[in-house]
Write a protein that binds this DNA or RNA. Structure first.
Lengths: 339, 339
DNA sequence: CTGTTAGCGCATTCAG
DNA sequence: CTGAATGCGCTAACAG
């Protein structure tokens, strides 16, 4: 690979001049500038980002550290991040912590070592990883969940309200024993959605029955197992609220395997867009999140944080959308939609 | 951030000694080594990867550059890559070219600039991007598709054979007008799968009707539009072979919207695992690829290539699996499965 | 406006 | 076995 000195020699100028031309700093004589550009072109010169970053002690790389790369919710976000990043000349790399604190730790270490310019993360919250980033003054934005014990910019939706609306809908449809399958206890998203479910029951004067609540990891298998347990229990629930897309799919798979009919035997309300949702029968009632906007907003917050590290942390709460479809209707009545 | 000199000062040794201890090079006096480790711990010292990589002119980062981050086929791969990488102390970052040559070019530039140690890529093939990597001696493994005009290690499946098997199955079921929705012309995967379809028709003595073939981008929308065109045409096809998961989903969505029944009106055979496949009725016949193994194999090839840059390029062809289910059966007969 | 000098943090010669 | 010196490639002061 050609270095800046190779270019300088060929253009018969100093390395500084090459640097100035290529970075558009200061003004350089037009003739020289042209010579430099030509030399760079001839040599197919590519600045070594390592050297540049070392020198400037800052990179132009962002990392998006998600908890599950196989969850389309997270990959959909990335597009929003990329679009903002590109406009500001950052490159985006995606890392997968797999809800595994060890993997998360390892990526955090890499992020620190590589002097990454900014991080968008759905934190596992199981340890002080975020602290390390904060201590090293790495700009951070949390998405999807709140970072425990760390004041950082955060982009979420109003999970409690959304869950409450979904549960209210199930109640108003006349479902009696409504179960909830939620995520791990230490993830704010899981807690808040469960809380919304609870509030709806309370407001309706229903007794809260802990046997109708299942904690699972945010995976299909978790939803499947949780649903199986719920169905094995007597009396059975007649509806279920699942707090993310994979849990919803898992729960549905369990019901398919057991011949449980939706919504006749068990009504279903899900969270997030479910892959191939339009092909699933009956059509699925879900709360959806503005994934692209979540990514975009997180990226914009990151830009602001980079520009002004001392600004107070922001919490950005984006709107959800309630899609009522056949899976949550006591008797089929077609499809509606409301906020 | 503490530097190596800070650690050296605290341990009352030279920076060289710190470097030796922390990298396990040469033998260092046990007492000194312990002092160094303690000092490093006290200062929470983290080597600056930029400086180290600059010095060694090599990083410990791999990039996986996929053509569509929203396609679960590609994200599923990553797990296989990660597992191998981790064992060899590499970190994996994922970049999304979005089937967009410009985005690809921009990531290739970043990969070059960042001195990435190895690249696993599903190339768009629209320009000489791979050449740039090869010229810079960056180890590369192509996945999913063959790299045009570049001799690189490659991991694929036998697309032609798989497509032929699928089409043969449709033929043997008695479908007469079998359509094919395939991907862009310049992607080997799309070409080979189409070729398998052709070969099956030829072997069966069927005339090849180009009006039954549609090229689309490998997206849901592409499958939807292509299917709409096929359905608008007279006479209609009575079966369709879609050459990837998203095309399959798109085609199915179109049929749902138009009230076309599967398989009674149109039989369907898909490619790849389709998200939430088990929830889709009728169950979908598909050819599946061993995604995890593709990732793992690619990573292993990358390791070998890094160890020995001069070894001849390998083509690794992994087995596919044919899942015959109800969507491709003339009359429902339950579910079978064969190689 | 341009060139010289220095140093980012580290690993690796080379002496000792 | 250990330390001093050097340079990876680049940019930012500083002179000129």
């Amino acid at each position: 690979m050609a270095t800046i000195y190779d270019v300088a020699r060929r253009a018969k100028v100093s390395a500084s001049t090459v640097s100035r031309v290529l970075n558009g700093k200061q003004s350089v004589d037009a003739t020289l500038a042209e010579r430099v550009r030509e030399a760079a072109r001839d040599l197919d010169y590519r600045p070594n980002a390592l050297a540049r970053s070392l020198r400037r002690s800052q990179t132009h790389l962002w990392a998006v550290l998600v908890s599950d790369i196989n969850n389309p919710f997270f990959t959909a976000l990335v597009r929003g991040v990329e679009d903002v990043a590109q406009r500001s000349r950052y490159s985006v790399v995606l890392c997968n912590s797999d809800e595994n604190p060890d993997k998360e730790a390892s990526y955090i270490a890499a992020i620190l070592a590589e002097q990454i310019a900014g991080v968008i993360i759905s934190p596992t919250n199981r340890s002080g990883h975020l602290r390390q980033l904060l201590d090293a003054d790495v700009p951070i934005v949390a998405i999807d969940r709140k970072a425990r014990g760390a004041r950082v910019d955060t982009v979420t939706v109003d999970n409690t309200e959304a869950a409450e609306l979904a549960t209210n809908h199930l109640l108003s449809e006349g479902f009696i024993r409504i179960a909830c399958i939620t995520g791990p206890r230490d993830i704010s998203t899981a807690e808040e959605r469960l809380e919304g479910y609870r509030q709806a029951l309370r407001a309706a004067g229903r007794e809260y029955d802990p046997r109708l609540v299942r904690y699972a990891d945010f995976r299909e298998q978790g939803g499947y197992t949780a649903m199986a347990e719920l169905l094995d229990h007597t009396p059975r629930p007649d509806a279920v609220f699942a707090t993310n897309n994979l849990l919803t799919v898992g729960a549905l798979e369990c019901m398919v395997d057991r011949g449980v009919r939706v919504p006749d035997d068990v009504g279903v309300f899900g969270f997030d867009d479910v892959p191939s949702a339009t092909l699933i029968r009956p059509p699925l009632s879900t709360i959806t999140q503005p994934t692209y906007d979540i990514g975009r907003t997180a990226a914009e917050l990151l830009l602001r944080r980079i520009a002004d590290p001392s600004r107070p942390p922001t919490l950005s709460v984006l709107p959800t959308h309630l899609h009522v479809r056949a899976s949550s209707l006591k008797r089929p009545r077609g499809t509606e939609s409301q906020r």
